[in-house]
Design a protein around this nucleic acid. Structure first.
Lengths: 336, 336
DNA sequence: AAAATAGTGTAAAACGTTTTACATGCTGGC
DNA sequence: GCCAGCATGTAAAACGTTTTACACTATTTT
C-alpha cells in the first residue's frame, strides 16, 4: 500500500522516469525490450498512476459536471443514466451537481470548470450560470451543452425534443377524442419547455378553432404535489375540464390521485395525458397516455456532443432535436 | 478569460507568490494591509485557484465516489440526494459510479481512490471491489462506507436499517391481518438485505407457528418487471397466497400490476406489502403498505461517516442502524 | 568515408500550488 | 545598546507526472 510512483518503477527497471512515462503513454517511443521491463516492474510494484499529477500536467480533468435541479426526479435520473454510460465509454467521469433549484449552487458547480475540476458542463436547467451576453464569442464560453430547449445564447449547444410539437401532439390527441374543455397543468413557468409546450397547446387549439379558457391553465412546478393541488384547483372552476394535459408524468400522477380522491374516474369522467413517459408511467392506474421523451438518448447525445466540444470538435449545428412520440395508454378516451 | 494564476496576482500586488498563498490559506500569517492588497489584486484579475494544483500539492481530491448499481432506481436516487447534500455541505463533490450491475465497473470506480481521483467510497452494493481478506488491517483499507448491511469485512463501516426486523415487521403485519398463506418476492438472492429480510420472514412465521410454504417464495431482482413475472408465477401455484410480501416497492408495483391484469383486486382478493417506501408508493393504486426506509438519512449518514473517516476520525462503532417503520396504507387488509 | 537519418534513451523544465526554513526589521526588556 | 522574540515577507523545494530538447549509437545514404 506504500505509494509507488513513476520514479520507483524507473529505479527498479533501471531506466529514467522519462522512459517510464513513455513506455505507458507513448509506446513506439521506446524499444520493446525496455518497455517490457518497465511494464513488468510496474506490475510487480502495483503501480497506479496518480491522476492528479497527470491532470495538472496535461491540463485536463477527465470530469464532466452535470447540473440538474433534482436527481431524484425520474425523468432526470434517466437522463443521467445516459450521460453516465457515454461518459464512461469515452473515458470521462461524471460529477454530480444537484442544485435543489438554487441558483447559488448552480454557480458553484459551473465554477468547477474554471477551477479545473471539470472539463465541461451538461446543463439541465434554464439559467446559464455565468455572465454571458448573447454577443460573447463562443470561444470564451466553456464547453457546455444544454439538455433542453435553450434560449440564452445562440452559440450554446442544446439537445431536446421539439417541445412545441409535443405540446401540439398531446393537445391534438385530446381534441381528436372530442374534448373541448381542456385543462392544463404546466411546469415551471420560467422554463423554456413549459413555454414551448404551451405554445403548442395554443396553436393546436387555434387550428382546431377551439377557444382557450385561460381559467383552465394552472401554472406550477414539475412535481407530484403540484399535480395534486392543481387538479383540485381545476375541479372548482366554473367550467369543469373534460380532459387535463399535464406537462409531466409526475404532475399527471398527482393529478389523477386528486381526481380519484374526489370521486372521478379516469378516463371515464376525465381524461388525463402526461409528458415524459417515465418508467413508471405504464404502471399508473390507469396506465398513462403521454408524450414520450427519449430521456436516455438525450443524455447520451448531450454527452457525446460535450466531449466532442471538449476535445475540440465543434459540430456544424447547434440545435439537436430528438424524436418524441405519443404513447396512447388508458388514461384518455373518447368524449361521449 | 486568460488563465490567471497565483503569480500574476503576486506580481500585481508586488509580493511573492508565497505571500499570496498565505493571504488565502493562512490569513494571520500576513499583515492586514498586504492581505487586502492581495485580495484586491485577485478579484481585479478574476482569480480562481487551480484546484488540480492544490489537490496535487495537498494530496487530497475533495471527491467521493458513490458506487451504486442503478441510479435510476427510486430508492437509490433518494440516497444519492442525501449523499449530495452532505458532501456539498462539507466541501466535497460526488463522483457518480453507476455500475449497471457489472463487477468490472465496480472495480474501475473503486480504483479511483488509488489513482487519487477520490478520497473515499460509498458503496451501495454487496461485493467489496478490492481484494480484502477479513484479516486485512483496517489501516490498509481505503476510506469506505457501505450503505447496506455488510458482511465482507468487520472493519468496514456500514449504515442501514435492521433488515431482519424489517422483514419481521412486514410479516407480522400480514399475520395480524389473519394471513397464513403468504407469498414472498425477494430481491437479489445474493444481497445481504434479501437474506436478512428473509430471515425475518421465517422467524416471524415460526414465532406465529405458521408453516412456510417454500413454493410461495420467489427469488428475483429488485426491479419492477421481476415483480410482474413473479406475481404470475405465484398465481399458478397450487396453494394460492392471500398476501404477498415484496422486498421492494418496485417489485410490489409490478406485482400489483400483474394481479390486476389477472382480475384480482388488491387488497380485497390479495394483500400486498412492499419495502422501501419510495416517494411514489403513496400514489400507487391502491396506495402501498410498506416498510419505510429512511433513504435520504442513510445517504446523509454514510457521507458524514465517510468524510469523518477521510479526515482521520474513526467512529467507535462500525455498524449504524437507522430506524425503519411500518407504513400502513391501503394495499393490505384483514383476511375475511 | 563522411554525412544524414533513424532509433532509443535521458536531463531538466514545466504544470500551479503549498509549505518549510530562513531573512529581515522592529519592539521592548534589561 | 544588546539580545530575545515577534511580525512579516520570501526563496526554494516539493507534489508526480509529461514533454521538450538534446545526446548517443547504429544504420543508411551519398
Amino acid at each position: 500500500m506504500e505509494k509507488v510512483g513513476i520514479k520507483d518503477i524507473a529505479q527498479r527497471a533501471g531506466v529514467s522516469i522519462a522512459t517510464v512515462s513513455h513506455a505507458f503513454r507513448n509506446p513506439g517511443r521506446v524499444s520493446d525490450k525496455t518497455r517490457a521491463r518497465v511494464l513488468a516492474a510496474a506490475s510487480e510494484l502495483g503501480y497506479t498512476p496518480n491522476q492528479q499529477a497527470v491532470n495538472l500536467r496535461t491540463a485536463r480533468s477527465g470530469n464532466i459536471v452535470v447540473i440538474i435541479p433534482d436527481i431524484a426526479d425520474s425523468y432526470n435520473s434517466e437522463i443521467i443514466k445516459g450521460i453516465e454510460a457515454v461518459a464512461r465509454k469515452r473515458g470521462y467521469s461524471v460529477l454530480l451537481g444537484d442544485t435543489q433549484g438554487t441558483e447559488e449552487r448552480e454557480r458553484e458547480f459551473a465554477n468547477m470548470v474554471h477551477s479545473r475540476q471539470a472539463d465541461g458542463i451538461i446543463l439541465m436547467s434554464n439559467n446559464v450560470p455565468f455572465d454571458i451576453q448573447p454577443e460573447t464569442p463562443i470561444e470564451d464560453i466553456p464547453p457546455i451543452v444544454n439538455g433542453s430547449e435553450f434560449a440564452g445564447h445562440p452559440g450554446i449547444l442544446s439537445v431536446s425534443i421539439d417541445d412545441k410539437q409535443g405540446g401540439k401532439d398531446a393537445t391534438n390527441h385530446l381534441l381528436e377524442l372530442g374534448h373541448r374543455d381542456i385543462g392544463v397543468i404546466t411546469g415551471d413557468r420560467h422554463s423554456t419547455s413549459t413555454q414551448r409546450r404551451l405554445e403548442g397547446f395554443h396553436e393546436a387549439m387555434q387550428e382546431a378553432g377551439v377557444e382557450v379558457d385561460e381559467n383552465l391553465i394552472i401554472y406550477g412546478m414539475y412535481e407530484v404535489d403540484m399535480g395534486e393541488a392543481a387538479a383540485t384547483e381545476l375541479l372548482v372552476r366554473k367550467k369543469r375540464p373534460t380532459a387535463i394535459f399535464c406537462f409531466s408524468d409526475e404532475l399527471a400522477l398527482g393529478c389523477m390521485h386528486s381526481l380519484h380522491a374526489a370521486g372521478f374516474s379516469v378516463p371515464d369522467d376525465i381524461s388525463v395525458i402526461g409528458f415524459d413517459d417515465i418508467a413508471f408511467a405504464r404502471y399508473f392506474s390507469p396506465p398513462l397516455t403521454t408524450i414520450a421523451q427519449p430521456a436516455e438518448a438525450i443524455g447520451r447525445t448531450c454527452t457525446e456532443l460535450l466531449i466532442d466540444l471538449i476535445e475540440g470538435k465543434r459540430p456544424k449545428r447547434n440545435r439537436f432535436i430528438l424524436p418524441h412520440a405519443l404513447v396512447v395508454r388508458s388514461s384518455t378516451r373518447q368524449l361521449d
